[in-house]
Structure formats: C-alpha cells, structure tokens
C-alpha cells in the first residue's frame, strides 16, 4: 500500500503537530481527545476507477448457544452476525456497557482474550470513527464471541476492569496507541510509549513516521533549551 503524497513538508507537519499538542495541557495523564484532525490528509482526487471489493460473507446466527446469548441480551444487542465462523455482537456504547459485559461474563464467557481498537476513518461503510472489539472466550464451553462497539472521535467508554482484571493492560494499550479514553478506572496511562509522547500512533491520520519525528523534535528542542 503506498502512502498518499502529502501536500506539506515533514517540517510543517511536525510544526502542526506541535501546535496541536500545545492545546493539550502538559503533564496531564489523560489527554483531551483532539477536536479536529488538523493534519489529516486531503481527500483523494478522483483518479482511477474504484476496484471491485469482495465482501466477507455474513451468515445468519444459527447455533443454539449463539441464540441463547442473544436472548439473554435482548434488545441490548444492536446487531449480530456470523462471519468466517466468528460470532459477532454489536453493542451500543453507554452507561450500562460494563453491566452488559458482566451479563455476558455470567453466561459463561469468563475469559477475555483481547481488546482491539480500530480507526475506521478511512474504511468504507462503518458508522463511526473508532471501533473496539472485545474477544471473549468460554473456557468451559469452548465458544468464542466478538463484542463490537463503535465510538465517535472524542467519545469515552466505561472500563470493564471490574469484570475482567485482564482488561487493565489492554485498555492502557488502546488508550496509548489509539487515544480512546476509558473512564471509571484507575491508572489509565501510557503503557508502551513514553509518558510525554505526542499523539496516538495507530490513528490513521498519522503516517508511520510522524509521531516519531515529532517526538524527536520535541526531545531535541528540550535538549537545546537545557544546554
């Protein structure tokens, strides 16, 4: 996949990033989500015709255990489907989100494999900016389930650390790399990147080197000031 050619030079991008960072209060652990992506790429000019896209087949929910969990959830489940043999439930973000997850936990899904975040801003046909996927597993029954939640940019979500202790590292990672803020928990801070890193690298608006360049520029500036 080739990167789109950006109209600005790298230096200007860094400046833009730095200007943007000044909006965030320095030293704050939870940075305020940015309002507008100032450095996001310009829309692609009309060029070659769009390629034909093969969609992954979505099958209806057929198995008993899948129906059972849908019955338990009732109208809280916004949508559900089976794709590539994986059962997906789509939930709405809200104040009862941890409660719904606890309900799923009570129904046998005691093992949280993973929390993944996706930036859908360049993805066609998704309702919102971000997606969060919770991959759950039932050790006793050997079933897997994916719970998906869609979020707007700047929207926060309640933590599920009380339901699964393992969510701690996962949520910190999502916050660190994607900038989604989890509320209702302690110790949400960066986990992989340095505390004073600029931006959240997995967002699509940043190319793979921008965050690095901005952070290096910041360190160089700081070193110059110290000297």
């Amino acid at each position: 996949m080739t990167e789109e050619k950006k109209p600005t030079t790298p230096d200007k991008q860094i400046d833009a990033l730095k200007a943007e960072m000044k909006k965030d209060e320095p030293g704050k652990t939870v940075s305020a989500p940015r309002a507008e992506g100032t450095v996001s790429a310009k829309p692609k000019p009309a060029g070659p015709p769009k390629p034909i896209i093969v969609e992954q087949a979505h099958d209806p929910v057929s198995e008993d255990w899948q129906k059972k969990i849908l019955d338990v959830l009732g109208d809280k489940a916004k949508d559900s489907y089976v794709a590539s043999g994986e059962f997906t439930i789509i939930l709405e973000n809200g104040s009862d989100f941890p409660g719904i997850m606890a309900l799923i936990h009570e129904n046998g899904f005691d093992y949280l494999s993973d929390i993944s975040s996706v930036d859908y801003s360049k993805y066609e046909g998704t309702p919102k900016h971000f997606g969060l996927s919770y991959h759950l597993y039932s050790v006793a029954d050997n079933h897997r389930i994916r719970v998906k939640v869609f979020l707007e940019d700047g929207e926060t979500i309640l933590s599920i650390m009380d339901v699964w202790a393992t969510a701690d590292f996962h949520e910190r990672e999502v916050f660190d790399l994607m900038g989604i803020v989890f509320t209702g928990r302690e110790g949400l801070r960066r986990i992989l990147l340095p505390e004073d890193w600029i931006g959240h690298p997995l967002r699509k608006e940043l190319s793979k080197n921008e965050g690095n360049a901005a952070y290096t520029a910041k360190l160089v500036k700081k070193a110059r000031e110290d000297a």
Partner: peptide, 22 residues
C-alpha cells in the same frame, strides 16, 4: 485480529494479542 478493507494489498489493521503481554 486482522481487518482488510478489500482494496489494498496489505492489512488495514493488524492487532496482535501476544500471550506474554497478557
């Protein structure tokens, strides 16, 4: 966890659930 947008020749998003991390 792999997400493909159907257009590109690479992953749209690839998330690794590393056992050591957890």
């Amino acid at each position: 966890y792999l997400i493909s947008d159907g257009k590109g020749t690479g992953p749209y998003r690839l998330k690794v659930r590393g056992p050591s991390f957890v």
